[in-house]
């Protein structure tokens, strides 16, 4: 189990690092006993490799593959970011927040900024990914190597839709009274399943993206979408942070009310967790976007 997890953790490393050291690291994992500490060590190493990538490794990735890695990396970050954003939406939904919280200038301004940027980022994801998705789908008809990841993504979405249906039925008003907390646990399980489904789709799309020859224009479109999403993530994080700071100042009684699926933490604590997750996702997306700039420049039309 640990060995399997360790191999999965290798996938967290930047593409150039894996191309240079991946085989050797696999070999080392085969030769040494894998412990839980090994997985944590790899996760930490991957994080460092993203934050401070060795300069000499840049030549290990062709510009086209750099753009593929950059676009899919941003998408993976966006999924995690969107999960935290969904948490923000759930935390601040309801008449109390609409009536009291949003009446304050900073709260209202930051909330509307989050909404507007989230819509713009979602649009950027769709527009940036559309040309690549069309190319992948066209190829999937002919090539099993491309059809496989596409099928995995479709199955993941169908599985999540089925799970959502089952949970909706169980949570319907007709269902018998449930013990306290069961609804909250079901909601957490549903959220985690949704996150897992989305990440499976990201991994599948990454595999498909690397399996299909693609024009520079399509890749630049995907990268540009990713760059816009990254900028939106950074701005949304700032807006949510402003909201998290302004709420206890302006409406202190709301900040301390219980929140979350299990009502175990306060609204303020929820907001802090969301800001931390958003900041981490935005920072990783920024790092992967910055690595793609040179490749996008090299692949620009007429270069």
């Amino acid at each position: 189990m640990n060995r399997r997890l360790a191999r999965l953790a290798l996938g967290l490393y930047p593409l150039a690092f894996r191309r240079r050291y991946g085989q050797e690291m696999c070999s080392l994992l085969d030769e040494t006993p894998a412990r839980a500490g090994t997985v944590l060590d790899l996760v930490r190493g991957a994080l460092f490799a993203h934050v401070r990538p060795p300069a000499a490794l840049s030549g290990y990735v062709a510009p086209a593959d750099r753009l593929r890695a950059s676009a899919s990396g941003v998408l993976a970050c966006w999924v995690v970011f969107a999960a935290a954003g969904f948490g923000f939406y759930k935390t601040t939904e309801g008449g109390v927040f609409a009536g009291v919280g949003h009446a304050h200038f900073l709260l209202r301004g930051s909330f509307l900024t989050v909404q507007g940027l989230a819509a713009a980022a979602s649009l950027a994801v769709i527009l940036g990914a559309a040309p690549s998705i069309l190319a992948v789908l066209a190829r999937a008809r002919r090539e099993p190597a491309v059809r496989r990841p596409v099928s995995v993504a479709i199955l993941a979405v169908l599985g999540f839709a089925g799970l959502t249906g089952i949970i909706s039925l169980l949570a319907s008003p007709a269902a018998h009274a449930r013990p306290t907390g069961v609804g909250g646990i079901a909601f957490i399980a549903w959220g985690l399943a949704g996150l897992a489904c989305a990440e499976v789709c990201v991994i599948a799309s990454r595999r498909a993206l690397f399996a299909v020859p693609m024009s520079g224009e399509r890749l630049i479109a995907a990268f540009a979408g990713g760059a816009l999403v990254t900028a939106a993530m950074a701005a949304i994080t700032v807006a949510v942070a402003i909201y998290a700071v302004a709420l206890p100042v302006d409406v202190s009684h709301l900040a301390g009310t219980p929140n979350g699926p299990l009502q175990a933490i306060s609204v303020s604590a929820s907001l802090v967790i969301q800001v931390v997750v958003m900041a981490a996702a935005a920072a990783l997306a920024t790092a992967t976007t910055l690595r793609g700039w040179r490749a996008a420049w090299a692949l620009r039309p007429g270069a």
Binding site: A9, M25, L28, L29, D41, L42, R44, G45, A46
Partner: peptide
């Protein structure tokens, strides 16, 4: 660990 070793290398 492998992450620490190859980070150093």
């Amino acid at each position: 660990g492998p992450g620490t070793l190859y980070g150093a290398l």
